[in-house]
């Protein structure tokens, strides 16, 4: 196995996902299988190759730094799970 359960828990923590105990082994196996497929890439000589950044070698378009969007706070917050006084509510972070 390329990946072990400890590494799986570590990346799950980074990705903010819970891993149910009965899925640890199948996930370790699946991800290891995918990673071993990916290891084919190690056989390619890429020393002099520049990593691709954009399929058409385009660069990011810039725009003037001015306000273009109207205020849509009410519409955008109307679909939020919990809002009060125009603020998004989450469980208490600081006591």
């Amino acid at each position: 196995m390329i990946l072990d359960p400890e590494q799986l828990y570590k990346i799950a923590n980074l990705a903010k996902l819970e891993i149910a105990e009965d899925t640890v082994q199948p996930l370790v196996e699946d991800l290891s299988r995918i990673l071993s497929m990916v290891e084919q890439l190690n056989g390619v000589e890429t020393e002099a190759v520049w990593p691709m950044a954009h399929p058409l070698n385009a660069t990011q378009r810039l725009r003037q730094d001015r306000v273009t969007e109207p205020d849509k706070r009410t519409e955008l917050q109307s679909i939020a799970p919990a809002v009060e006084d125009a603020l998004y509510l989450v469980p208490k972070v600081i006591e």
Binding site: L3, L14, A15, L31, L35, V38, L41, M52
Partner: peptide, 25 residues
Amino acid sequence: LMGTYVLSAGYYDAYYLKAQKVRQL
């Protein structure tokens, strides 16, 4: 999970950067 792994510290060059180079090829 796969994406988090290939972008995580210590693996980025080996997986992500390598893949973007082969993508160029």
